[in-house]
Amino acid sequence: MSISVHNLSKSYDKIKALDAISFEVNEGELFGLIGPDGAGKTTLFRILTTLLIADEGVAKVANMEVVKEYKRIRESVGYMPGRFSLYQDLTVLENLNFFATIFGTTVEENYELIKDIYIQIEPFKDRRAGKLSGGMKQKLALCCALIHKPKVLFLDEPTTGVDPVSRKEFWDMLKRLNKHGITILVSTPYMDEAALCDRIALIQHGKLLEVDSPQNIVDRHQKIIYNVSAENTYRLIQDLKRFPTQEAVYAFGEFIHYTDSKSSFSPEELRAYLLQNNHKNVDIHTAVTTIEDVFMDLASTFKSEAIEN
């Protein structure tokens, strides 16, 4: 087991950042932690990278306990914090050399591992890190976190604020790194990136909603989702929300995603209702369920449960 977390809780004053979280990450897995801002992702990362101590629970990284064996963990993990945290006044090469030196290695020694990524930033190797573009910065940070060939790599929102093309490149790189046998724990607020992980954990308000492979999570989700569109989207949302048996209504790209609470629901009822309300060009068809739909559904049930309690 590369990472094992058991019953982990952490609070800041009265706010519960993590609430009795348990999950395990297998060796060599690309594991995604998916959830909105403020869900507790960074707190979990900091506990696992030995930067914070949990109030309750046990966590192990590479079979080492995060509190007692923190020194050994610090030698064998790579960590890329959510905020760009390299030396802006040092050049690309100087940053890389510095991190290699403090981990007691050299750039040459592990060049194989970072080659694919480094080649992309090599043309800028004498540029100061502060003057790089967002995507380049993330690639450099990844290189620096990898330079000592860590057993486990922690990437806290590595693609936040990065353009779509660079985001895709970044995930391609993670896939390749995975083949080197490095366990990767990556967090992201982007649901579309979840599908790229081996397994994911959905997290909200410090609680895990679900842990499984993206496909299993989607498959297990029984509800049929309908893509609804009409001429006036704003009025459409208002009216859909007024439909008596509606369960969830939210914008999804150019469509409105709609789910119904009745098992005997037929789209024709809805079409009739909408036409009756003077909507034009009404279109209703079933949609392919995505992680985002599952998340929205889980998050809303979770919220209503919380209110009931």
Partner: peptide, 13 residues
């Protein structure tokens, strides 16, 4: 302030 301390802490230094 720049967050680099976070990385230095998670290092063998």
């Amino acid at each position: 302030e720049l967050g680099t301390m976070e990385i230095l802490l998670v290092s063998p230094l």
